[in-house]
Design a protein around this nucleic acid. Sequence first.
DNA 1: GTTTGCGTTCGAGCGCGCTCGAAGCCATAG
DNA 2: CTATGGCTTCGAGCGCGCTCGAACGCAAAC
Lengths: 180, 180
Amino acid sequence: MATDDLMTRALETLGDDGPLSVEAIHRLTDLADVPESMMINEVADLLDISPHTLRYYERAGLVEVARDSNGHRVYDAEAVRRLVFLTRMRLSGMPMRDLQHYISLVDAGEQTVPERLDMLLEHRDTIRRRIRELTLSLAATEYKIATYGGSTGPDVQDLDTATDRTTLPHEPLRPALRTR
Amino acid sequence: MATDDLMTRALETLGDDGPLSVEAIHRLTDLADVPESMMINEVADLLDISPHTLRYYERAGLVEVARDSNGHRVYDAEAVRRLVFLTRMRLSGMPMRDLQHYISLVDAGEQTVPERLDMLLEHRDTIRRRIRELTLSLAATEYKIATYGGSTGPDVQDLDTATDRTTLPHEPLRPALRTR
DNA sequence: GTTTGCGTTCGAGCGCGCTCGAAGCCATAG
DNA sequence: CTATGGCTTCGAGCGCGCTCGAACGCAAAC
């Protein structure tokens, strides 16, 4: 099953840290057990977004949702799968307008696949760029934590302002652990 | 020199890809050559933000900037270093209000160091979480690109909507290269 | 039959982080 | 002596992505 491969890769990539990855992998992999149809609150719980946002996405033209006899929304499996995709793209920073364009391509048929692929490739590069930025910021932040936590010197100002050059000379060397 | 260590770590972490990391490392390491004083456009160029934004940060209380005889802003080395820090924190997603709080702590003196440290630790965790999210989204996007680009099957719907289940059965297997 | 509760539509409002425009000052260039 | 250009202050506006409130409908519980 393909999702197994993906989950494996994701787990390898991420390590075993934290509840968020578990939750996210859940969302990545649990597409198999999407029910026939769901009501708005179930979908909201599944995707961890508000019913308001789901209605907003529908208004924005990202997904069509049927109604039951009471006028209540009934999300079929296709709609849910699309929303999983949309939610993931939103989470990774793709703007609403791009999503709208992408969906319009999807609805336009197979001949738009090349353009969709282009969008995905571009988005992939955007994510990579963002990860690199964040990795850099993480390194800088960890460095600053390390200097704050223990052996500091004149180098501290390299990563901070001058007035922030706190040396804490009498505190014991406190390495940067404390995962919160 | 401590920045050398940092640069080394950053380079190791990131690999050699792309102009952005070079540019960013430049900003990480080039704190040594900060001039005595700079005018607003020089600082804006250095940090790759607009003069508007620099004035905005000053209005927000994040940094104090002196004026010359013409009333023009003169950024001393300390202000520039602080702005480097602030810009990096903004880039990694720290909200303005947190930055304002952090700066108020800095200005309050050394006894606020523990709280500053707490903020940094929390921010570090936020960055890590975000990186994990993005890594997951990246894997999903790459998987989708792979299925779009070549051998597809019923599994495609695992990562997409049902109407988007484009199989392209007659196209040659086109692996996901094209780095754009 | 009324109340409770959860859904509906629609448009307005909000929080964030800029971004811009107007009006004015000053200095150097032509 | 103008004119040009770049800075200043101030407040207003904007783009994004929600988020909310008002007014209403239906249905099961009491």
